[in-house]
């Protein structure tokens, strides 16, 4: 057997697995979106574009799209800003506590998302820690609304993205060689110039990758917007959930899910085009 043929054979299990867990459900989703939904909510097997036309006839989809992108951009960026120094510290530290700190940084991933959100409710709620502190020091007399709105969702989502961002950054910091910064120092660059001229540019690929990963996660996040949004935060993911779980409009939910998927693929394509131009 030629080695080429053997290599192809080796890919067979993976291809079958991918087909089983990805292609087949995708086909199911696509097929579902061409069914129709009757006026009473009953699904009518069909092969029509009615659901798709319905999807784009309602301008609400564009509001949802904009909301999703806005939320994802803001929370991914915030996660980046908070995670970057932590990741750099983790990457650099020689401390014997490094393992502990790393575990703490990614510990939120081990906690169920719903539990974490109830934690945030306890902290950010009207009678939560933050409001108690604000009122305690006399900054406000009325509680400041920090949950059940966009603020709460953005905070919660940022926090839930941080472990992923930290992991992506630490993994991507591979190119950061300590001696490069030392070289910059020996050439007369003070610390902040070293960061700007060496560390930051070299970590940009990691930043881009981490940001993209978080963006995709944020676009598909629904637990956080649902539980912390107080019914005020409408994004694509919550709408897909709502359509499939509450309204039982599976064809429309499928169409919206596919629309979201295409949107994400477009972002990925833009990213890879950009990174190819960079390289």
């Amino acid at each position: 057997m030629k080695s080429g043929t053997r290599l192809v054979l080796l890919t067979v299990p993976g291809v079958i697995l991918l087909a089983a867990i990805y292609v087949w459900p995708m086909y199911g989703l696509g097929r579902m979106s061409f069914n129709e939904t009757g006026p009473t909510g009953a699904m009518i097997p069909a092969l029509s574009s009615k659901t798709w036309r319905e999807l784009f006839a309602d301008p609400f989809i564009f509001e949802l799209t904009w909301n999703s992108i806005q939320l994802s951009v803001v929370s991914s960026t915030a996660a980046l800003i908070f995670a970057y120094p932590l990741a750099l510290f983790l990457f650099r530290t020689q401390s014997r506590w490094r393992g502990v700190i790393a575990a703490l940084a990614i510990a939120p991933m081990l906690v169920n998302g719903v539990v974490r959100i109830f934690g945030w409710l306890a902290i950010l709620g009207d009678r939560g820690l933050v409001n108690a502190a604000l009122q305690g020091i006399g900054l406000t007399s009325q509680p400041v609304r920090l949950v059940y709105n966009w603020t709460g969702v953005t905070i919660g989502l940022t926090e839930s993205l941080m472990p992923y961002m930290i992991l992506a950054l630490v993994a991507g910091f591979g190119r950061l060689d300590r001696s490069l910064e030392e070289a910059a120092a020996s050439l007369g660059a003070p610390p902040w110039r070293r960061f700007l001229r060496v560390t930051l540019p070299l970590s940009l690929p990691a930043v881009a990758l981490g940001w993209l990963l978080c963006f995709v996660l944020a676009m598909s996040a629904y637990i956080t917007p649902k539980l912390l949004g107080g019914g005020r935060v409408f994004v694509l993911a919550t709408e897909i959930y709502e359509l499939s779980i509450t309204s039982v409009n599976w064809p429309l939910a499928s169409a919206l899910a596919l629309y979201t998927l295409v949107l994400l693929l477009l972002f990925l394509a833009a990213y890879s085009a950009m990174s190819r131009r960079q390289a």
Partner: peptide
């Protein structure tokens, strides 16, 4: 004095050239 104020040239074993 910090390294960046010492006016010393340093050539690293790995050269430490800026790859970017």
């Amino acid at each position: 004095a910090p390294a960046h104020k010492r006016d010393m040239g340093y050539v690293f074993q790995s050269y430490a050239l800026f790859p970017h």
